[in-house]
Amino acid sequence: MSTHHRHRQSVVNRLARIEGHVRSLKDMAASDRECGELLIQIAAIRSALDNVGKLILKDHLEGCVVAAVESGDKDKVLADLEEALNKYIR
């Protein structure tokens, strides 16, 4: 694991929990649970994914962006950051 990604293990752990949550949602749908219950679970999963995205962005800003700026690669890292944000925030 790169030293630039301090939060990576937390990201992996959160994604594992989200994976379990999605599996549980699938089981709920298969057992014909109420639509409202399914929608509530989907909202919870979306929120959890958004929080993982924020943590990855924090890792990127604190590690990758800082390292790139320090190495004099500011223009490229800013262009890469803009591209990533445009894909993440559609």
Rank of each mutant, 00 (worst) to 15 (best):
R90T: 09
N13C: 06
V22Q: 03
A30N: 11
A44E: 09
L81E: 01
S47T: 13
S24F: 05
E37N: 10
A48H: 05
A16N: 13
A79P: 00
N13W: 10
Q9R: 11
L78P: 00
A68G: 15
S71V: 01
G72V: 01
N86Y: 08
G63S: 03
C35W: 06
L81S: 06
R6V: 11
A79R: 14
G20P: 01
R6H: 11
H7E: 12
A48P: 02
E37T: 14
E62M: 07
D80M: 00
A79Y: 00
E83A: 15
L85V: 12
L15M: 13
R33I: 09
S47N: 10
R14E: 15
C35M: 07
D73Q: 15
R8P: 01
G36C: 04
K76T: 14
I89S: 10
D75P: 00
L49R: 04
L81K: 05
R23Y: 02
A44T: 06
G72Y: 04
K54E: 12
Y88F: 12
E37G: 13
K76F: 06
D50K: 10
K58F: 06
L39G: 02
M28P: 00
I42Y: 05
R6C: 07
L85A: 06
Q9I: 09
N13D: 15
V77S: 04
G63D: 02
S24T: 11
E19A: 12
M28W: 02
L81M: 09
K74F: 06
Q41W: 02
M1H: 11
A79G: 04
E83G: 10
I56H: 02
K58P: 03
G20A: 05
L39T: 10
E82N: 14
A16C: 06
K54G: 10
D73L: 02
L38A: 05
L38Q: 08
D27C: 09
R8M: 11
I56A: 15
Q9S: 11
R6G: 03
A16V: 08
E70C: 10
C35S: 12
A29W: 05
V77T: 12
G72H: 02
R8V: 13
E83N: 14
E34K: 14
L49V: 07
I40N: 09
E70N: 15
R17A: 14
E82T: 13
A67D: 15
L15K: 09
G53F: 00
A79C: 00
A84L: 10
R14I: 02
S71L: 04
K26D: 10
A84R: 13
E70I: 05
D32H: 15
L38E: 03
R33G: 05
S71K: 13
K54P: 02
K76W: 07
Y88R: 11
H4L: 14
D80L: 01
A30Y: 11
A79H: 07
A44C: 06
G36A: 11
V22E: 00
L81A: 03
R6S: 10
V22P: 01
D32I: 00
H4T: 13
A79L: 05
I45C: 03
V11C: 04
I40D: 12
V52G: 02
N86W: 11
V22H: 05
H5P: 02
V65Q: 00
M28Y: 04
E34P: 01
C35A: 14
T3I: 09
S47G: 13
L78W: 04
K74P: 01
I18K: 04
I40Y: 08
I18M: 02
R33K: 14
